[in-house]
């Protein structure tokens, strides 16, 4: 069985591919920022004095981490639509991503917070820092620095999972590919090109996070050692 690869017919579609890749990046950016906020809030809630907060946050984390992303998307998108809540596909996709990645970042940030030595907090309190100040300077900043590598690889994984939102036709890279292959009938070639584009996105994202880390954490930049 001979098969001749033909990538030439795909050239015409480079603007579409590019637009899809940009959409993927934009969705990833939004979900990273919002997901991190949820993660920090969730992590604080999981260590809260109030039992009900701990239970709610814990339930959220376990439910999300033990069900497939695809089911979460369908539940949210079709479910909300069935009760009359109409929202743009892209908004629904990003919402699903935020809910999903928020659960994972909650666990990661929590691990970082738990690694902060209690003596650090006592020291800060005895210096007269307020509770929010203790949280920000002594707990969260070192916690985030410590778990930064785990966080960023989680965000890269989320960028890859964003391809699943193509199943509700969010116009990101994979959905674009689905359209193009149905027009050109060069399915295999289309998905090989898209695989390469995702690899480029992965490398871009990893480099971006690395640079950001260099800027955010001067201690790590200067000493090069994990906290």
């Amino acid at each position: 069985m001979m098969y001749t690869f033909d990538f030439s017919s795909l050239w015409a579609y480079w603007p579409e591919f590019l637009a899809g890749a940009l959409t993927t990046l934009e969705m990833t950016f939004a979900a990273t920022v919002l997901g991190l906020c949820i993660g920090v809030a969730g992590a604080i809630a999981r260590g809260s004095r109030h039992a009900w907060l701990r239970v709610v946050a814990g339930g959220y984390v376990e439910l999300v981490r033990n069900t497939p992303f695809l089911i979460q998307i369908f539940f949210l998108f079709f479910g909300l639509a069935s009760v009359g809540v109409r929202m743009p596909v892209l908004a629904a996709a990003v919402l699903a991503m935020v809910i999903n990645v928020g659960a994972y970042t909650t666990e990661i940030v929590r691990a970082g917070i738990e690694a902060v030595h209690p003596g650090q907090i006592e020291a800060a309190e005895s210096l007269g820092l307020s509770v929010p100040q203790v949280y920000w300077y002594v707990i969260l900043r070192p916690a985030l620095e410590r778990v930064y590598p785990a966080l960023t690889s989680q965000f890269v994984l989320m960028m890859l999972s964003s391809s699943i939102t193509s199943q509700i036709s969010a116009e990101e890279l994979t959905a674009v590919a689905n359209n193009i292959q149905s027009i050109t009938f060069r399915s295999l070639e289309t998905y090989i090109v898209v695989a390469l584009l995702y690899l480029v996105l992965t490398v871009l994202l990893k480099s971006g996070f690395w640079l950001l880390g260099q800027g955010l954490f001067p201690r790590r930049r200067r000493l090069g050692t994990p906290l």
């Binding site: 069985m1 699943i164 998905y191 695989a195």
Partner: peptide
Amino acid sequence: VQIVQGTPLLIILFVVYFGLGIFG
């Protein structure tokens, strides 16, 4: 490993699915 971990599983699935398809 880098290629597999840097590509969405969905895309791997499509490549395999259509890749197998070319054998007719």
